[in-house]
Structure formats: structure tokens, C-alpha cells
């Protein structure tokens, strides 16, 4: 983190959102940075500083998009199989204008969030139990490990039979997918808490509850956040599976809709939205983790 902060500290003019260049404030962040880069480019090194900044991650995707658009316009890609990015964008605009897009995104997001919540809650309870208590571990963990080895999609027929084809079975499937990575990370995180730190707690005569709250909880947090992020990405994976099986709304439904009606632009639009939403929700978790784990002595923070 320090590395990135430092590089932007050296070139404050490449950070227009800090209010130094109000004239650019109405531009998107992207354009403003380009502008700033061009403006300070005359001063020499700042172009390199821009390249080392946090916008590096955008270079490749934008480059590929431009190449794709160009090659589509030149007729290299057949439009009935691979439409140009501008066509896909237009499709998304169309969906947005009709209000359909909000409905599809809304229902998919609802399923993921609910499934993620239920799965995380269950995994937190079971992971805390089996991680902290060796007895609970001996009773519960073998069964849970066996269940983990059932490919999660194999539950689909049973869930549909038990819970019907509507929301409950979809949310249950997502919850199952989210459960295992969160459970595993939390359990092993608790088991790997440094015995030496626990001993410090004992010397100061902390009660069991205090020991959990003041030593185990913070020490386990890094592993737990990794588990949450893994769980969330599986949640997105399973919402697609659930919506492919049978749904009349949602981004997964758009995929099937695009396939059956022979409209690749719809499929691509849906893929793009999945990528955006997945990245967005993961970034939220990552930012939360970074905030909570500022104390970590890691390669990036050093």
C-alpha cells in the first residue's frame, strides 16, 4: 500500500479528485487522470509515475477493448458471433432504458447477497465451533468434509425436489457454495492462532470469552476475510448455475435468453455485468479487509 501511496504523493497533480484541479472535477476519474498525465507530462518523469499508479489495472482491459472494437469494425470478427463492444454497450443501454436491466441485476444481486449471508452465517457458527473446540472438531468435521466433497451442483435435483423451483432452492444452492470456503478458512484460521499469543492471554488471566474476543478473533480475521472473498466468488458462480437451471429473471436468465434467441450481444452484456458486479462486491470486501487488517506486516504494507 505504501508503495502506491508514495508514488501518488510524489505526483499530487495526478490526483485531481483531491480538489487541486476543480476544473476537471466533472470529468470521469479516468479522463481526469489522462488529462493530468498529459498536463504534467511536460515536466518529465510524471508519465512514469502515472504508469506506476493504481490505474495500471485498467491498461490491459481498455487496450483489449479498443483492439476488439477495431477488429470488429474491420470485419475480422463475424458480428453474428462476436459483436463489437459498442454493440454490447448499446444492448446494455437498451436493457437499462426499458427498466429490465435493474430488475435482472436486482434479482441476481438479491439471490447472491441472501445466499452469501445464509452460507456465511452457518459457516461462521460451524467454523468457530470446530476450530475452537477439539471435541466439536472430532464430531463435526469428518461429516462436513464428506459433504464438501459432493460437487455442489449435484445438490440441484434434491433442492428442486425439496424446495421447489423458485427462490428458496436457488438461495440454498448459493449458500452451500459459500459455506465451505468460509468454513474451511475460519476453522484453519482459528486452529493456526499462535499458541504463544494465547499464552499471553492466559498469563493475564483472560476468561474464555475474553480470550476469544481479544486474541482469537483478531488473530483469525485475515483468514476469515480470505474465506469470505472465496465464498463470495463461489456465490457468483452458483447464482449463474441456479439461474441457468430455470429462472425467468436475472443475469443468468439473460444468458439463456441470449442463447435461445441467437443474440450474442445479450450473452456478452450479461458476462460483462457479471464481471463488473463480481469485481465490485469483491473490491468492497477487499477494502473492508484492508481497513481491518492495517496492522499486518505484509509485503505490500512494508
Amino acid at each position: 500500500m505504501g508503495f502506491y501511496t508514495r508514488s501518488s504523493d510524489l505526483a499530487p497533480s495526478s490526483e485531481p479528485q483531491n480538489g487541486r484541479s476543480p476544473a476537471k472535477a466533472t470529468h470521469s476519474r479516468q479522463q481526469a487522470t489522462w488529462g493530468a498525465g498529459a498536463r504534467t507530462g511536460a515536466k518529465g518523469l510524471s508519465r512514469h509515475r502515472w504508469l506506476r499508479s493504481r490505474y495500471q489495472g485498467w491498461v490491459l482491459p481498455i487496450g483489449l477493448l479498443i483492439a476488439w472494437e477495431l477488429l470488429s469494425r474491420l470485419g475480422v470478427f463475424p458480428p453474428n458471433l462476436l459483436p463489437a463492444p459498442s454493440t454490447v454497450t448499446a444492448t446494455i443501454w437498451g436493457l437499462a432504458a426499458s427498466g429490465e436491466l435493474v430488475r435482472h441485476i436486482g434479482i441476481t444481486l438479491f439471490r447472491v447477497v441472501l445466499g452469501f449471508g445464509v452460507g456465511t452465517l452457518a459457516a461462521t457458527v460451524f467454523g468457530a465451533l470446530t476450530g475452537y473446540s477439539p471435541v466439536a472438531h472430532r464430531y463435526l468435521d469428518p461429516l462436513l468434509q464428506a459433504l464438501r466433497n459432493i460437487p455442489s451442483l449435484a445438490w440441484v435435483p434434491l433442492f428442486i425436489l425439496w424446495l421447489g423451483i423458485f427462490e428458496t432452492s436457488k438461495v440454498a444452492l448459493i449458500a452451500v457454495g459459500v459455506f465451505f470456503p468460509v468454513y474451511l478458512n475460519l476453522m484453519s484460521g482459528i486452529q493456526n492462532v499462535d499458541r504463544k499469543l494465547v499464552e499471553v492471554g492466559k498469563i493475564y488471566r483472560l476468561s474464555q470469552i475474553q480470550l476469544i474476543y481479544r486474541v482469537f478473533f483478531p488473530a483469525t480475521l485475515p483468514a476469515y476475510i480470505v474465506g469470505l472473498r472465496n465464498g463470495l466468488s463461489l456465490g457468483w458462480m452458483f447464482v449463474v448455475a441456479a439461474e441457468l437451471m430455470g429462472a425467468s429473471q436475472g443475469l443468468g436468465f439473460l444468458l439463456i435468453d441470449g442463447q435461445t434467441t441467437g443474440r450474442p450481444a445479450i450473452i456478452l452484456a450479461s458476462l460483462l455485468l457479471f464481471a463488473l458486479l463480481g469485481k465490485l462486491t469483491d473490491s468492497l470486501l477487499a477494502a473492508l479487509g484492508k481497513r481491518l487488517l492495517r496492522w499486518q506486516d505484509t509485503y505490500i504494507s512494508a
Partner: peptide
């Protein structure tokens, strides 16, 4: 009775002052 270990065994998530206050809960 206080015990100082061979290693500092500080809680990495607490500041110096919070670490010192660890036993004063």
C-alpha cells in the same frame, strides 16, 4: 506475577500503548 517471554509476543493488531494495556482489562 508478571512474565516476560523470550520473544516479545506482542499482539500485532494493537498499538504499543494498547499492548501495554493488554493486562489491565
Amino acid at each position: 506475577v508478571g512474565l516476560v517471554f523470550q520473544e516479545p509476543r506482542l499482539m500485532p493488531w494493537l498499538t504499543v500503548q494498547e499492548n501495554i494495556e493488554f493486562g489491565l482489562h
